[in-house]
């Protein structure tokens, strides 16, 4: 498929659509302070957002809820590695090891 010059216009619009939410409060700063209670609530944003991004990767496959999968086992292995050991590389090694190992044993 070929695209003409309008693709670059789309990239610029997409750049605005993705940068404006990111820059919003960082740029506005003190001029648009959020209320104290909202700031307190926002401390929960990273945990809620990370879980909301990760959970579908682990529990959903092809649009269907999948409770037992190599990806769930790999995620559990990564969580255990992160909980039990301080080595920052270990969750990647154990997680991917389990994923590849199970993928080998149980070809889908």
């Amino acid at each position: 498929m070929n695209y003409d010059w309008t693709l670059w216009g789309l990239f610029i619009l997409l750049g605005l659509a993705t940068t404006l939410p990111r820059a919003s409060f960082i740029v506005l700063g003190e001029r648009a302070a959020l209320p104290e209670s909202l700031q307190k609530a926002l401390r929960y944003a990273p945990a809620a957002a990370l879980a909301a991004i990760v959970a579908p990767d682990i529990f959903v496959s092809g649009g269907e809820l999948t409770l037992f999968s190599p990806r769930l086992a790999a995620a559990v292995a990564a969580v255990l590695a992160a909980l039990l050991f301080r080595n920052p590389w270990l969750p990647f090694i154990t997680g991917m090891g389990v994923l590849w190992g199970l993928g080998h044993l149980l070809p889908a």
């Binding site: 404006l20 939410p21 990111r22 919003s24 409060f25 648009a32 926002l42 944003a45």
Partner: peptide, 18 residues
């Protein structure tokens, strides 16, 4: 709009970091 919605979570992050 799809790109904007996919990045909406960053308004929350941006406010938390401000």
């Amino acid at each position: 709009i799809t790109a904007f919605v996919l990045n909406l979570r960053f308004i929350i992050f941006s406010a938390a970091l401000a």
